[in-house]
Design a protein around this nucleic acid. Structure first.
Lengths: 120, 120
DNA sequence: CGCACATCTTCACAGACGTGCAGATGTACA
DNA sequence: TGTACATCTGCACGTCTGTGAAGATGTGCG
């Protein structure tokens, strides 16, 4: 049970934290975004697109060595969320990144918390 | 079905991507880290600790308005992963951030992809 | 010791998630 | 039109995950 809502151990700090903490709705949005990257296949898709600009589904499936069905499922989530965009060239559909925040997140994690200096 | 592994549409780009893409193991690690933040409660815990430095479990439960059991469960995951550390003061246990990458990730997402300018 | 308080843990379960399969859609070309 | 190819979608299933309930652990105090 949450404590009585009446007995914070450090009331000032609690008030301070309450004022600055990510709000419920924002946290939900942030978590939803991060959930997209919290899967190895999707993270690697973002990584691959970040590396070479754009790739079609079949080539992506070759790069990652996973089934095209899996790639397609993953791309659908990313596309719906606005993380990637696509263009069609004949029967081939090329995907590219549409949200610079995603590769940035991967870099921050990979580099261990240093968020300064961009793509090296 | 995956293509034949023999018919990339852009072989050069595939080779290029293969060389630069996040490897399977690394992707697994990155995804595991991000999964920790891909939950509203844990994201808010990181946010709160980032805001005020340290908080005990009970106060955290007040700040977030969730049960202390939920906070404790969440903290265990974060602690096991090295995201937070704690110190004991009597019966009260204070938690603080131990991995600067996590709040950095939250900021990158919140700011929409601008990864420059670090913490503070 | 016994009691109160803060935190942790075990168990159980509903809900979300990732993936393969099979078929559908859409495009190109003859 | 029919075939071949690239991609997408719906369904089903095993697995993972977050949470609450209830009790356990650990600490301080008298």
């Amino acid at each position: 049970m949450p404590l009585d809502h009446e007995h914070p151990i450090d009331a000032a700090r609690v008030a301070d934290a309450r004022a600055q903490v990510l709000e419920r709705d924002d946290a939900e949005r942030v978590a939803a975004m991060l959930r997209l990257l919290a899967d190895p296949v999707r993270a690697r898709i973002v990584s691959a697109l970040h590396a070479v600009g754009e790739l079609c589904v079949g080539d992506l499936s070759l790069v990652l060595d996973v089934s095209d069905s899996t790639v397609s499922h993953a791309l659908r989530l990313l596309r719906t969320a606005g993380v990637v965009a696509n263009r069609r060239d004949g029967r081939v559909i090329y995907y590219r990144l549409a949200d610079p925040a995603m590769p940035a997140v991967l870099e921050v994690i990979a580099r261990g918390g240093d968020a300064s200096a961009g793509s090296g």
